[in-house]
Nucleic acid binder design. Sequence first.
RNA 1: GGGGAGAUACCAAAGCGGCCAACUGGGGCAGACUGUAAAUCUGUUGUCGAAUGACUUCGUAGGUUCGAAUCCUGCUCUCCCCA
Length: 376
Amino acid sequence: MMFRIESRDPSTSARAGILYTAHGDIPTPVFMPVGTAGTVKGILHRDLKNEINAHIILGNTYHLYLRPGTDIIKEAGGLHRFMSWDMPVLTDSGGYQVFSLAENRKLTEEGAIFRSHIDGSKHTFTAENVIDIQRIIGADIIMAFDECAPHPCDHAYAIKSMELTHRWLDRCVKHFGVTSPLYGYDQMLFPIVQGSVYGDLRRASAEKIASMEMPGNAIGGLSVGEPAEVMYEMIEAVNEILPVDRPRYLMGVGTPANILEGIARGIDMFDCVMPTRNGRNGMLFTSEGTVNIRNRKWKDDFSPIDATGFSEVSRTYSKAYLHHLIISGEMLGAQIASIHNLAFYLSLVTEARERIKEGNFGKWKDETVRKLSERA
RNA sequence: GGGGAGAUACCAAAGCGGCCAACUGGGGCAGACUGUAAAUCUGUUGUCGAAUGACUUCGUAGGUUCGAAUCCUGCUCUCCCCA
C-alpha cells in the first residue's frame, strides 16, 4: 500500500492521508515546491526542510536531460545524490514543455522533437526514453509523457491530443514494466488525465487513466488559461472516476484559493511555480491576501512580512526592508520572498490537513478562500 | 589672457524649420506571472480631462518666419584645450 487515507472531511471530498515513498512519507494534502533544474530557485535545502517544511520537490525531465545531462546524473548516482537532497522527488516528464515550448517542438506519433532552447540542437522525447531518463534521474514518482494541450483548444483537437496522450501512456506503462530502477529503490509511475475543458473527454480520459491501475493519478492540462470555475468542474468530473484510494495530483496548480478548492474536490498533491516565481517578482502570498511588495505603500512599513508566518524570515524581516531589496534587485530579496511564499503554501496545506482531521475543513475553506482573494 | 564645445522632461541622451508634448535607456508609478526558456515581461510617466481635446514646455531675453527645441542676436551658466 503506497497511500493510506487517514480521515475524510464530512462536508467535502477532502481527505488527509500519507503517501509512502522510498525517500520518506508524505502527509497529504501536500504542496510540492518546483525545482525544475535540480534546484528550487534560490533556496537552500536547509531552508526547504527547516523553514518551509517541504516534504517533496519536483524536477524536470526535459531540463535535466539538456543540462547537466543524463551522463552526469548517472555518474552522480541519481538526482538525489547529485543535488544532495535525501527526501522525495517527483519529476515531470516534459509534457509541460510540449505546451510551454510549443514554438520549439514538433509533435509526431513517436513523440516530441524539441529544438533545444539552449543551443538549438534537436532532441526527440518518446514515451520510452522519457521513462529511461526518469529512471536515470531516479525520482520517487515519475510522470507519463503527455501532451499538455493549450487553451483555448477546440473539441476536435482535444480528442486528438487526448488519444495521443493515451497511446503514449500505454507505451510508458509497458516500458516502465520492462525496465528497472537503477539505484536500489522503487519508483512510482503516475499517468495523466487530459481532455482540455470538455467534460466528456475528461471523463473518458479518467476512465483510461483509472484502468491503468497505477499507484497514483494525475490531472494535467489545467490552469493553462481557462477560468477557475471551468477547472473546478473538470476536477469534479475526473475525481468521480479516478480511484478514491489512490493519491490524486493536480499538476501545476495554483493559487492558494485554487489549492483549497482542489483539496475540497479530492485532490491530494499540488505543485506550482507561483510561490517562487511570483515571489522573485515581488508578489507575496499572505493570510490577508496578496501583496505587491514593490508598491510604494510598503516603503516605510516596518512591520514583519507576516507576523504569524511559519518561516523565520516572514517574522524577522520587515515589509520595508523586503520592499527595498526587491526594488534594488538584490538576490536576498528574491530569496526571502521565495521562502516566505513557500512556507505560506506549505503551512496552508498543513492547516487544511488539520482541519480535515478535525472534520471542519469545509467551513474553514470557504472563509479562507474569501480572505485569500483579497489584496492587501 | 587666447581658442573651442555645449545648455532638451527626475537623470542620461536623440532630435537640428512643420510628421515634436518631443526617439531611446535609466529611474519613478502600476500590472501580469499557475506540471519555470522568467531575479522575467507589459503598460504608464508635462498639466487638466473618462475621452475627442485644451493648455504650458527644450538655459534666458529678444528677433526672423505662415510656423522655431531646431535659424539669428544679446545675456547667464557649464565643460575642454592652449598660455
